[in-house]
Design a protein around this nucleic acid. Sequence first.
RNA 1: CGCGGGGUAGAGCAGUCUGGUAGCUCGUCGGGCUCAUAACCCGGAGGUCAUGUGGUUCAAAUCCCAUCCCCGCAA
Length: 314
Amino acid sequence: METLKILFLGTPDFALFSLRALVEAKREIVGVVTQPDKPKGRGYELLPPPVKVFAESRGIPVYQPATLRDEGFYELLKAIDPNLIVVVAYGKILPQNVLDYPKFGCINVHGSLLPEYRGAAPMQRAIIDGKKVTGITTMKMEAGLDTGEMYEKAELVIGEDDNFEVVHDRLGALGANLLLSTLAKLEAGTLIGKAQDDAKATYAKKIEKEDCRLDFSQSAQKLHNLIRGLSPIPLAFTTLPDGKLLKIVASKVSDCTKSGKPGEVLALDGGKITVACKEGALDLLTLIPEGKKRMSAQDLINGRRIKVGDLLGS
RNA sequence: CGCGGGGUAGAGCAGUCUGGUAGCUCGUCGGGCUCAUAACCCGGAGGUCAUGUGGUUCAAAUCCCAUCCCCGCAA
């Protein structure tokens, strides 16, 4: 069969795992399409996406079209003339004419076991929902949102205290391997697509600001799941009694048996800030107070910014 | 020039408004108590208060000016 000429579409670190694997597997990558540099951070500094930085360092042509839905991009596509498009966390919907272009179609690496968690934030949502297992699916792209035929899957166990960072990195690596496997099957002519059961589909909505607010009238376990799912980015938050933001990097379901009003600080022992929840209590371990650096709970306690009886999140 | 917080002992902070011999909670070191301890008691070391050999002043962590660095928000 003819050599795969791959056009890679991806943007953040998660995509980098797959792109790097393709490069290291000596795949022919005819180009990389990624989001335009965007003003980020303090002072609106223009920052290139991780994928761009890597691709440029390897001498791969990088394209950053504002949209894929105009003639300009289609002309570019014809000029590059890939016979396969691989998409990993690109961040934009591909129009039909692009989907139809490559002879071998468009393959997507998705961070969930489809049809569960279709959409934008599958990894975070799986953790937030307290899932014990998640995974990667490679799939054939079609017009719908993550609805195409599935090729291969790989599972990943989520540990009780695993956070988004851990799951993200493991799934990234898993996704890269699975992609290579899927490409090998494609070349061998043994790749088989399997339709998704739409009835079982769930959607992983994008994470919004309000999704990140801790509500201590929920169970400690749920709050712990939320904190994990949002750590280290964008981070769950609550507020200190003075109204300042307090972001929570790491927590643990507490074995403390005291009880109190939801949000009440029950204890400050052992380097932990123990907060009452509706059910059980939560130990806050690592935090970022507004305007401050990341610090341990003990550091926050030493600084006297918090005391037993304080009410968080009110 | 997007908005805001901050740089004081190894860590986290107070002190800055109302200039006048640098303090708290920890850690650390030594000693004590204890069957024992991350608990408790006593004692000690450790700071050019980001930088400028800057300005004002009898006197600056504190007021003024400039610069560097860190962080939160927003995007």
